[in-house]
Structures are given as structure tokens and as C-alpha cells.
Simulated scan of single mutants.
Amino acid sequence: MPKKQPSRDKNNLLFTVEKQMELLPFLLEAMPNRSRNSVKSILTRGQVTVDDHIETKHNYPLYSGQTIKILKNKAAVKESALIGMTILYEDEDIIVINKEAGLLSIATQKEKKQTAHHQLMEHVRKEDPLNRVFVVHRLDKDTSGVMLFAKNEAAKRKLQDTWKKSVKERTYAALVEGKVEKQKGYISSWLKESKTHMMYSSPVKNDGQHAITHYKVVQSNTDFSLLEVQLETGRKNQIRVHMQDLGHPVVGDKKYGSKQNVIRRLGLHAKILSFNHPSTGQLLLFKAEVPKSFYAKSK
């Protein structure tokens, strides 16, 4: 039987994996009072996280020591629980969330509802059915951390039109492959998108969108380095391409050169977002704690 931990809050059940097994059999053991179909639907709805990422695959392999979190019940899902994210701040103009790895920011052709945007739309419509949420910027599905949404058209426009000026800090934690020898530096290149939707650095100056990424080493060993990365520009897949250019791809980023996935997710986390409020102009700063696995692997 999986070992149950003291529950951290009333909406979650926590378990520790004690032996190697697949996720569905583990959940069936962990919740003996539920039918197989009920457990399957909990998985499908995205109510299960392994360590710090949402997992929906029945045959996902588990290893000893991992933490499984299960959002408790259907009522919680219907009433108030946001799956795969928490709200850090909300007022009449903006919502700031901490998104978990595995949750889409916005809808795709395949997935319409299990997204941060859709859930926040439902959340604000509880107060007024006419309320809406607007996307200001995006995080990749497998990147976790701080993300900002607007609650009205004016706030969205102001934030997007003044993004370069309004955003004072965008700091990421990146777990990358290998030991980064240079303790701090930056990468500057012109990013382009291929026909297969891969971003890459053009060897030709001014050929594409200029992208600048600053980094410094937080800690490292012979296999992995934990970097603090600051964006001077915010281009699609910028950090992932620049880390590949550096010769140290982001862990778990098969698309951009990673050969291994020891943390079983993408090693990228939006740690800090600081910006001027679109209405008041007040400087706000939000932080999302760096996943423990990032530190553990780079010790």
C-alpha cells in the first residue's frame, strides 16, 4: 500500500511512492474505495501530479521516493479547485498564477478545457457570467512558474503595448545538461522559425527576431548546472534555443538537444515576474518557488 503523508491542505491527498510501479495501479492501491473507472477519470481530468507535474498517462512509470498529489473530489473540481495551478494574486484588472509543468497556457486543437486560460475563465465567471480573462503572454506547456493574465481588454492592451517598458524583471530557473564553466554570461542571436516550427538562431545578423538571454550559474556538478536566467527579450522558445546554442540544453528538452530526462519534466521554471500594474502603475513582484528536483540534480 502506498505510504500516505499528512495532507498539506484540505483539497489534496498526498502519497509517497515506495516501489517502482505504474501510475494507474498505484492509484488503485492508494484509493481502494474507488472503482477502476472513477480512478481513471481522476487521472484523465488532470487531478494527479507526480512530484511537481500533472500526469494523465495510465502507464506512467513511478519510482521510489516520488510524491503523488491527488485533488480530492469531484465537488472540489466543480466548486473551486484549479487544477495544475494556484492563484498568487488577483484584483479587478489582473490575475497572476503559478502554473505547474504539464498544464497548457491556452487551448490547442486537441485540448480546449484543461488549460490555465479556460479554468481562469470559469473562475471569474462564477462572480459574473460576463466576466472574461485575456492572455497577456504564454509559458510552454512543460514550463512551470509565474504567469500573468488580464481581466479586461484595456488592461490586456496596456500590458501588451507597454510590455518592454512595464516588465522590470523576468527571471527563470533552468536546469541544463553538463557543467557550465563560465559563471555568468549572455547569448545574443537572431531567432527564426523553421517550417517544422522549430526555433533556431540564424547565423546572419538582423535575420530574424533579436533575442538576448543573460545567465549565471547558481550551482553545478559534472552532470548538471542550475542557472538563473534573465530575459532581455521574450521570444518563442528563447531560453531553450539559447541553452542549446550554449552547448548545455535544458534537461528534458528533446526538441532542442537534450539527451536525458532525469527529472521527468522540462527543466525550466518562471521564477520571478515583476511589472508595473496596468492601472495604478505600482511595481509588483511575484515569485514561484524553484522545484526541489532542480536543486537536487545540480548539487
Rank of each mutant, 00 (worst) to 15 (best):
Y89P: 07
E90N: 07
E90L: 05
E90T: 08
D91H: 08
D91S: 10
D91G: 07
I94E: 00
I95K: 09
V96S: 11
I97Y: 05
I97H: 04
N98W: 01
N98L: 06
N98H: 06
E100I: 03
E100K: 15
A101Y: 12
G102I: 07
G102L: 09
L103I: 03
L103F: 08
L104H: 15
S105A: 14
I106T: 13
I106L: 04
A107G: 04
A107C: 03
A107L: 02
A107K: 14
A107D: 04
T108P: 10
T108W: 14
Q109T: 05
Q109N: 03
Q109S: 08
Q109P: 00
K110G: 00
E111I: 07
E111P: 00
E111W: 00
E111G: 01
K112R: 14
K112E: 13
K112P: 01
K112F: 11
Q114C: 06
T115V: 13
T115M: 12
T115H: 06
A116G: 05
A116K: 13
H117T: 07
H117S: 05
H118Y: 15
Q119T: 14
Q119L: 14
L120E: 08
E122R: 11
E122G: 04
H123R: 14
H123W: 14
H123K: 13
V124N: 09
V124Y: 13
R125L: 11
R125A: 13
K126N: 06
K126H: 07
E127C: 08
D128A: 04
D128R: 04
D128Y: 02
P129S: 12
P129E: 08
P129Y: 07
L130N: 12
L130K: 14
L130H: 11
N131Y: 11
N131C: 13
N131T: 10
N131F: 12
N131Q: 15
N131I: 08
R132I: 00
R132V: 01
F134Q: 00
F134W: 15
H137T: 02
H137F: 03
H137D: 04
R138C: 04
R138Y: 02
R138W: 00
L139K: 03
D140L: 03
D140M: 04
K141W: 03
T143M: 08
T143S: 15
S144C: 07
S144F: 11
G145Y: 07
G145I: 09
V146Q: 05
M147Q: 14
M147S: 02
M147F: 01
M147V: 01
M147T: 00
M147E: 06
L148R: 00
F149W: 03
N152P: 09
E153R: 15
E153A: 15
E153I: 07
